[in-house]
Simulated scan of single mutants.
Amino acid sequence: MTILLRRLRSDRGAASTQLVLVFPALLLIALLVVQFALVWHARHVAQHAAQRGLAAARVQDGTAAGGQAQARRSLAALGSRVLTAPSVTAERATAKTTVRVQGTVTRVLPVPGLELHASGTASGPTERITTPTGGQP
């Protein structure tokens, strides 16, 4: 009877049991870190594309369509896999131009309902020729 009690109180196999219980949690934490790193990267890609689109749209002879096209080219070059289903909007007025880039971030974890979004917005004054007094020529 004492031999049986000694075997039941033994720590043999405890490391394997702990590994089986702890390893999935550590793997989940690592994948969450990768997922949020992708969100961070996607936000930077969206912001860069918006800034490139703004640079093309705000020039004197630029158009909102030209800004959208430039932002889409930047997305294709940088973030076609990180930022899925991107949408680009550009608004050009006489005083201010704004470009917005939005999209869904690629998922690492196959969790239902986990849909992370990233966006970037850039706005600035529209370039135009003025006289030294501030009026139109």
Rank of each mutant, 00 (worst) to 15 (best):
Arg81Met: 08
Arg81Trp: 04
Arg81Glu: 07
Val82Lys: 08
Val82Gly: 02
Val82Arg: 08
Leu83Phe: 09
Leu83Lys: 05
Leu83Pro: 02
Thr84Pro: 07
Ala85Ile: 03
Ala85Val: 10
Ala85Thr: 12
Ala85Lys: 11
Pro86Ile: 08
Pro86Ser: 07
Ser87Arg: 12
Ser87Trp: 06
Ser87Thr: 13
Val88Leu: 08
Val88Trp: 02
Glu91Met: 03
Arg92Asp: 10
Arg92Val: 11
Ala93Met: 14
Ala93Glu: 15
Ala95His: 04
Ala95Val: 14
Ala95Phe: 02
Ala95Arg: 12
Lys96Tyr: 09
Lys96Asp: 07
Thr97Arg: 09
Thr98Asn: 05
Thr98Trp: 01
Val101Asp: 01
Gln102Ile: 07
Gly103Gln: 03
Gly103Val: 04
Arg107Gln: 13
Arg107Val: 03
Arg107Ala: 13
Val108Arg: 04
Val108Cys: 11
Leu109Cys: 11
Pro110Asp: 10
Pro110Thr: 08
Pro110Val: 12
Pro110Cys: 11
Pro110Glu: 04
Val111His: 10
Val111Phe: 13
Val111Lys: 02
Val111Ser: 04
Gly113Lys: 13
Leu114Trp: 08
Glu115Phe: 10
Glu115Thr: 15
Leu116Gly: 11
His117Glu: 08
Ala118Lys: 04
Ala118Arg: 03
Ala118Tyr: 09
Gly120Trp: 01
Ala122Gly: 07
Ala122Val: 09
Ser123Arg: 11
Ser123Phe: 08
Gly124Lys: 00
Gly124Ala: 05
Pro125Cys: 00
Pro125Thr: 11
Thr126Asn: 03
Glu127Leu: 05
Glu127Ala: 13
Arg128Ala: 00
Arg128Thr: 00
Arg128Met: 00
Arg128Asn: 00
Thr130Asn: 11
Thr130Trp: 08
Thr130Pro: 02
Thr131Ser: 12
Pro132Arg: 06
Pro132Met: 06
Pro132Gly: 06
Thr133His: 11
Gly135Asp: 13
Gln136Ala: 14
Gln136Thr: 14
